[in-house]
């Protein structure tokens, strides 16, 4: 049994699942627009929380938040379920498939065997869509792949019941009602303001302030923790920035694409200009990643390298602070 479902590859898993589910319901929206309306751009540094043995850094809000914000902005109604009993979770999924409802699932990445080893970590907030069942295999649309895959019942249960931080607990969701004609004007303006406020928030670990805190920490890591640990923390910082699903440069390019689309929609030349600026900032994030990767390639472990990286991050924070102040005034 295969539902009528159009799989489209996307950069980010959460947006990709949303876009695919909504498109399927006849509500056309692009990935950058979904990302922008969900105020997906973010930065947070949680030095006290260790993920994979390194301090946690995230370039996005908590999983699920982007979709919820966007759904709220547009008046989309979404049904969500979690199950303490895996058998019930599967039963609900089967029921949905029978009723012709492609269903979004939140799953853990580690046991997804179709990913290369380099991507398999205990990250429990990946999004996939199930769109059919053939014999004993569920047909899966994983938004970051350009083809569809399939998983057995057992494999699917394993990823749906991955444990640890953000354990999905069989979380499934699907849109039940989409608006017919929506005017995006207000939604866009509100979402942009939200992103600006987040990035300029007067909280030391959030937004540009969080970036400055990381920039300072890079120097401290080297002195306090030694070269090996400092490098490892740096690896994780850059890995999060360029991880599959970010579209590169810590989501900056997706956001630039959103600003362009928003500029066209609102007929706002200033937004179009700012979109170009955001893309340049994205390029600078990529430069930062290149610089960081040199630490391992050349094995140059002088303090100087960390100083350079720290300075670059400071510069990025300054650029983004100026950028988001401008953006706030542009809408």
């Amino acid at each position: 049994m295969q539902l009528d479902f159009n799989h489209q590859q996307s950069a980010h898993c959460e947006n990709g699942a949303i876009v695919n589910l909504l498109n399927n319901k006849g509500f056309k929206i692009t990935e950058p627009m979904a990302f922008g309306l969900g105020s997906g751009l973010f930065f947070v540094y949680l030095p006290f929380l260790k993920v994979n043995h390194a301090p946690a850094v995230s370039y996005r809000p908590l999983p699920g938040v982007i979709f919820n914000r966007m759904a709220k902005q547009l008046g989309i109604k979404v049904k969500r379920f979690k199950f303490s009993n895996p058998a019930k979770a599967q039963q609900k999924l089967d029921e949905n498939l029978k009723n012709n409802i492609p269903t979004g699932l939140v799953v853990g990445v580690y046991h997804l065997n179709y990913f290369p080893d380099e991507y398999r970590f205990h990250f429990n907030a990946h999004n996939i869509v199930v769109f059919g069942k053939e014999e004993n295999r569920y047909l899966i649309s994983d938004p970051v792949l350009d083809y569809t895959v399939s998983l057995t019942k057992e494999e699917l249960e394993k990823v749906r019941y991955a444990k640890g931080a953000l354990a999905p607990k069989g979380h499934l969701y699907y849109p039940i009602a989409v608006p017919q004609n929506t005017d995006l004007t207000n939604a866009i303006k509100k979402a942009i303001k939200k992103t600006c406020n987040d990035m300029l928030a007067p909280v030391p670990i959030v937004g540009v302030k969080g970036m400055r805190m990381v920039a300072k920490a890079i120097l401290k890591w080297h002195k306090k923790l030694g070269v090996a640990k400092a490098n490892y923390n740096l690896v994780n910082l850059v890995r999060m920035q360029e991880e599959i699903g970010t579209g590169g440069g810590g989501f900056r390019f997706i956001y630039a694409a959103f600003l362009q689309e928003a500029g066209e929609y609102l007929n706002n030349a200033q937004l179009m200009q700012l979109s170009k600026e955001m893309a340049l900032i994205g390029d600078k994030w990529r430069d930062f990643a290149v610089e960081a990767s040199r630490v391992y390639k050349k094995r140059s472990n002088t303090e100087n390298v960390y100083q350079v990286l720290s300075n670059r991050l400071m510069e990025l924070a300054d650029l983004e602070e100026a950028f988001f102040k401008k953006l706030k005034k542009a809408v």
Binding site: Q9, S10, N236, R239, A289, Y296, K297
Partner: peptide, 18 residues
């Protein structure tokens, strides 16, 4: 949107991580 087969700095970072 453009498909990318990979990016060397990212691969270096991933290998370092592994």
């Amino acid at each position: 949107s453009v498909q990318s087969s990979g990016w060397e700095p990212k691969t270096i970072i991933q290998n370092q991580n592994l």
